[in-house]
Design a binder for these strands. Structure first.
Length: 369
RNA sequence: GGAGAGGUAGCGAAGUGGUCAAACGCGGCAGACUGUAAAUCUGUUCCUUCGGGUUCGGUGGUUCAAACCCACCUCUCUCCA
């Protein structure tokens, strides 16, 4: 089945709703952990369940290279392969156009990549991306887009947006799996008219949901918030809005206040492996000397497995000793922190108290309170 | 007792007359990380009132100039007795 989005309450622009999927109904706003290679790094599906995860991500580019989409199709798609047991989403490889490909390797037909595993030449097209994603079998799939670098000139961005729109239509034309919802991706950088154009043209194509791409690529916060706003205000209210790659706690709040429903981000798991934890008083670095003898938990209001069982002092020791348990414990905490944040956000939108909640959270997080 | 090798920053280890406060690695201390080429990367790591000051086992010496050359002392390791 295709997903269905239901808007249940609006508090200014913030939206409380849910998404009906084959695996159940999931409330939004939602944070989706990233499992590029078909696994949220270091975590088992049971651990993901425990932190309250709903949809999780995987990546077309990575799984195409290894193990290959046929291996996954053979296992019954990502669900059969990973046994996650919840809804899944695949990114199209569009972000790898940003992170791996050179500008001169972007053509109308598709994008030339150097295989990051063995250096061989690869060519990914919108059709190929959808074809792979059809085999991977995630519940939600993405159009193949170009995520342009920041800053890009207006001229470049205009061409890029038009090309990404053509790619979206090409992908939609070949998409042949009715059980998968296909999203279009709004681009346009920081240019309001390009964002508007991108969104409106995608809406004409009638996608199952809409993503906002091209943010958090080095632009400032205020610019990013504008990019979001320029995008969401041109999107239909009855479809889910997905802000791609954003997961800093404050950015989630700012996104929600601009009408975003779902988020994904590698930040909680990556900074975890690097020894950092989100707390309600801001991000902390467990490697810091000041935690050496600190027997308190990461965050005294957190209900995660890590905070129920372990101290900063012990986690610090694990991280410094390069014990993988340290990264795991912090990943559990950080993902739980963001998911808990979305739970609180939902509650406050329902109660029409979102603005106060947001301001209080940010003041505390930034140490102003 | 004899022969040899060697003692360089917290540790390991380069350096064998000036461009050396001394490469590099580890360890230490910080920082970054936003659709994951990331269990990664960056900075810093003798003291300093930023003018400078004191270092390369110790003490003397040679030289305009010494971690580097010479003498003696001292300690460590290996082999032989």
């Amino acid at each position: 089945m295709k997903i269905k989005y239901n808007l249940l309450n609006k508090d200014n622009e913030a939206r409380y709703g849910n998404i009906e999927t084959k695996y159940g109904v999931y409330e939004t706003p939602m944070f989706m952990p990233v499992g590029t290679n078909g696994a949220v790094k270091m975590l088992s599906k049971e651990e993901l369940k425990d932190v309250g995860s709903g949809i999780i991500l995987a990546n077309t580019y990575h799984l195409w290279l290894r193990p290959g989409e046929d291996v996954i199709e053979n296992a019954g798609g990502l669900h059969g392969f990973t046994k996650y047991g919840g809804p899944m989403l695949t990114d199209s490889g569009g972000f790898q156009v940003f992170s791996l490909a050179k500008k001169e390797d972007i053509f109308e037909e598709g994008v030339k990549f150097k295989n990051h595993l063995d250096g061989s030449d690869l060519f990914l097209t919108p059709e190929k991306s959808i074809e792979i994603q059809n085999k991977l079998g995630a519940d939600i799939i993405m159009s193949f887009d170009e995520c342009p670098e920041y800053p890009s000139t207006y001229e470049y961005m205009k061409d890029s947006v038009e090309r990404t729109l053509r790619w979206a239509q090409r992908g939609k034309n070949v998409h042949n799996n009715d059980s998968q919802s296909l999203f279009g991706i709004v681009q346009g950088g920081e240019y309001e008219d390009l964002r508007e154009h991108s969104a409106k043209e995608l809406v004409k194509m009638n996608f199952d949901g809409y993503s906002i791409g091209g943010t958090s690529v080095g632009e400032g916060k205020d610019t990013m918030y504008k990019m979001i706003e320029y995008s969401t205000k041109n999107l239909p209210i009855d479809k889910v809005r997905y802000l791609m790659g954003v997961g800093d706690p404050i950015d989630i709040l700012e996104g929600v206040s601009r009408g975003v429903d779902i988020f994904d981000c590698v930040l909680p798991t990556r900074i975890a492996r690097h020894g950092n934890a989100f707390t309600k008083y801001g991000k902390i670095n467990l490697k810091n000397l000041k935690y050496k003898y600190d027997l308190s938990t990461l965050d005294d209001t957190c209900d995660c497995y890590t905070c129920k069982n372990y101290s900063k002092s012990y986690i610090r020791h694990l991280i410094i000793s390069k014990e993988t348990l340290g990264g795991r414990l912090l990943s559990i905490h950080n993902i739980r922190f963001l998911i808990k944040l979305t739970e609180d956000i939902r509650l406050n939108i329902k109660n029409n108290t979102f603005e106060d909640f947001k301001n209080n959270f940010i003041n505390k997080y930034e140490g102003k309170d």
